[in-house]
Simulated assay, not measured.
Amino acid sequence: MSAKHRLYRVTFMNQGQVYEIYAREVTHGGGMLGFVEIGKLVFGEKTTVVVDTSEEKLKNEFADVERFYVPVHAVVRIDEVSKRGPARIVGGVDGGSKVTPFPVYNFGGDAKK
């Protein structure tokens, strides 16, 4: 598969939910240490008759986004795939997902002395 036609399935945590999206570009965050840069998102064709509501929700959420950055600890997995599946929100922490988020520590003022 040529670099121009590479396709990635990116699974990541976002506000307690597991997102699964498809993109043509996935790189380290460039100048943003600790982030994964995701660009050229790929969604289903607008000509299809069957409408997947979860994919439509994600398409609307990322409508004007050219690229976005995900913290490395929020990335569950990145796969290079040969064909696109549906972009979807798989589940969440309370939604029956088998994905457990990486613990986030508060280094601020909540610690008791």
Rank of each mutant, 00 (worst) to 15 (best):
G31I: 03
A23V: 08
E37P: 00
V104K: 14
V49K: 13
K46Q: 12
R84N: 01
Q15K: 15
E80W: 02
A111H: 10
A74S: 15
E45S: 15
R84S: 04
V10A: 01
I21M: 09
V76D: 07
F62H: 12
K112T: 08
V18I: 12
V76P: 01
G109A: 13
I89E: 05
E25W: 00
V51L: 07
F43L: 08
K40M: 05
N14T: 07
I89A: 04
G30M: 06
Y19T: 04
V65T: 15
Y105D: 12
V42W: 00
K113M: 08
M1Y: 08
T27D: 05
Q17L: 15
G39C: 02
Q17Y: 12
E80P: 01
R77V: 09
V26N: 08
H73I: 14
K4Q: 12
L33F: 04
A111N: 09
K59W: 04
K46Y: 02
G108K: 12
V18P: 02
E55F: 03
V26I: 10
S54N: 14
V51F: 00
V10M: 05
V65R: 02
S2Y: 07
V99L: 08
M1T: 05
D79T: 02
V18E: 06
V93H: 04
E56S: 13
V65K: 11
V90G: 00
S82W: 02
V18M: 02
I89D: 00
K83M: 03
V81W: 05
T27M: 00
R9E: 12
S82I: 06
V18W: 04
A87K: 00
E66C: 01
F35V: 01
K40T: 08
G91T: 03
G85P: 04
S82R: 07
V76R: 11
E66W: 00
A87C: 14
E37G: 03
V76A: 14
V90W: 02
G95C: 09
V26H: 11
Y19I: 01
N106F: 11
K113R: 10
G91E: 01
A111T: 10
G39R: 05
V10Q: 04
D52N: 15
E61S: 09
F43N: 05
E37H: 09
T48G: 03
T27W: 06
R6Y: 04
G95H: 10
G109Q: 11
K46I: 07
K98Y: 10
L33A: 15
R9D: 06
N60L: 12
N106A: 15
F43E: 11
D94R: 15
A111E: 13
L7G: 09
A111S: 06
M1R: 06
V51N: 06
A23E: 07
P103R: 14
L58G: 07
E25M: 07
D94F: 12
V65A: 03
Q17D: 09
Y105M: 13
I21Q: 08
F35T: 10
P103L: 10
